[in-house]
Computed example of a mutant assay.
Amino acid sequence: MALNINWQAIDLVMFDMDGTLLDLAFDNLFWQQAVPQAWAALHQHPYEQALELLKPQFKAQEGTLNWYSLPYWSHALNLDLTTLKIQYQDHICLRPHAVQLLHDLRMANKKLWLVTNAHPIVLHIKMQKTGISHLFDQLISSHDLGFAKEQELFWHKLAAQYPFDKKRTIFVDDSESVLHAARYYGIEHVYGITQPDSKLPARQQLKFPAIDQLNELSKYLLSIQAEE
């Protein structure tokens, strides 16, 4: 896609983590296979039955902090999900071009924030695994602000604790509900991700401009720099 970005008017780039910089395939594997299998073993249910029993529990918390909270689900399901997450951590991987994009943006003197709904425990595991934490000026978990990114109050809390100019900010996230909340708050430049999970087909007819490969952002940035 052609990105109509005036990089001279951008100071800050906020990135989501899962499905944006990291492949969402890990999270789908964890929540759709690993967790139901562990819960099935605990309750001596077949996997398929466990999956069906868990779906309404997950659905009831969608869009809230609980949905993203490893401690909440560890308690609700009586499972040690931190240990389970660590057991599966070899499946955690970055999306193509993620590291190069972050380096390019830093070279262009853009501030970089990681803004995620992941619980701090999960954020720590994934930063340890990927080794990208040093590339960010801020690592922000919505759990530290008390609201999920889908909720309007999250953005007010974020701006109060970490002031930024929403007109000079780019925000990239694979969740359209999160992008809606960010746009409603007033962030002018919001972009989605066409294929957050490498194991699934690219999504079509998204409501926001969407990026296929992350280097679409950096290629455009480098072309602007070359013209200056």
Results as ranks from 00 to 15, higher is better:
D144V: 09
Y47A: 08
T116I: 06
K167S: 14
N78L: 10
H45E: 13
A50R: 01
D174M: 05
L51T: 12
F154W: 04
L84T: 01
N117E: 03
A181D: 03
K167Q: 15
S177D: 11
K85I: 01
L70C: 11
A160Q: 15
K59G: 11
I92T: 03
L51I: 05
I140L: 02
P46C: 05
H119F: 07
L54R: 01
L102S: 02
P71Y: 01
P163D: 10
F58L: 12
K59R: 13
E152T: 15
A76Q: 14
I86V: 12
L114C: 04
Y162T: 08
P96V: 01
H45C: 12
C93W: 11
C93P: 05
L81P: 04
T130H: 10
A50T: 05
A160R: 15
T82I: 12
L51K: 15
L105M: 12
C93A: 15
I121R: 08
L81T: 06
G131D: 06
K59L: 14
L79W: 05
L179Q: 03
P71N: 04
L94W: 08
N109A: 13
Q44W: 01
H91Y: 15
E152W: 11
L51E: 13
W67Y: 13
L135N: 00
T64F: 00
W155P: 00
S175A: 09
